[in-house]
Design a protein around this nucleic acid. Sequence first.
DNA 1: CCGTATCCGATCCGATACTG
DNA 2: CAGTATCGGATCGGATACGG
Lengths: 121, 121
Amino acid sequence: MKIRTDYTCPLEIVHDIIKGKWKTIILFQLKNGSVSLSGLEHGIEGISQKMLLEQLRELQQFGLVEKKKYSGYPLHVEYYLSDDKGIRMIDALKIMQQIGIDYMIENGMEEELKCKGIIRG
Amino acid sequence: MKIRTDYTCPLEIVHDIIKGKWKTIILFQLKNGSVSLSGLEHGIEGISQKMLLEQLRELQQFGLVEKKKYSGYPLHVEYYLSDDKGIRMIDALKIMQQIGIDYMIENGMEEELKCKGIIRG
DNA sequence: CCGTATCCGATCCGATACTG
DNA sequence: CAGTATCGGATCGGATACGG
């Protein structure tokens, strides 16, 4: 993805930052600290390596995620949220997640939440 | 759009709620009170009527937006944010908007913001 | 003014194969 | 373990025409 330089509205950027099937999930996976690529791949059910890397690259370009490489073999990198934009995006996503939880409860999908340990049974 | 009933993760819902090019912008247009369809169409540059109606319908299905019809001619309806999910989504979007503003400032797009009156020049 | 339907190009994303 | 490249089906979104 080529990053645009002609945004005229902050919400356009917001859309580009979070669009796609996986970005919000990837960000949430990072909210408790840095994770390796394979850790993310393992933690996110159904994602392909291609999508994971592609979306991580975009999140880095927008300054929400950073990467640290450790030298030596086997290769090892860690992805983590940036102090400013990344952390604040989590704050916003937590509000949205609660909206999603409410929606699930209102629409009879409470059991799935209990299974995942998101709410108490 | 057929609404799913098999969500297993609240963030999936979040994604469905905000996905698409226009949803965040539509929600923001409603943050100061109810607006008619034509008002929205006028206020959102570049949106087609088809997309506007389609996205409004989805936002209603997720419980973020509600609609009131006034009888009489010419036909008149007003769209507005729901007290619970709609308002809270705006809280989240405001945080995200600020991230977008920061991004624009950091990347030399400050002038556009001043033109729109989002920040002071 | 409000809302629906269809056509069609652009984009997204999953599968797969390959490199360092 | 980390990352790139390509192909093809599914979905998105703009234009346009039509109906209440």
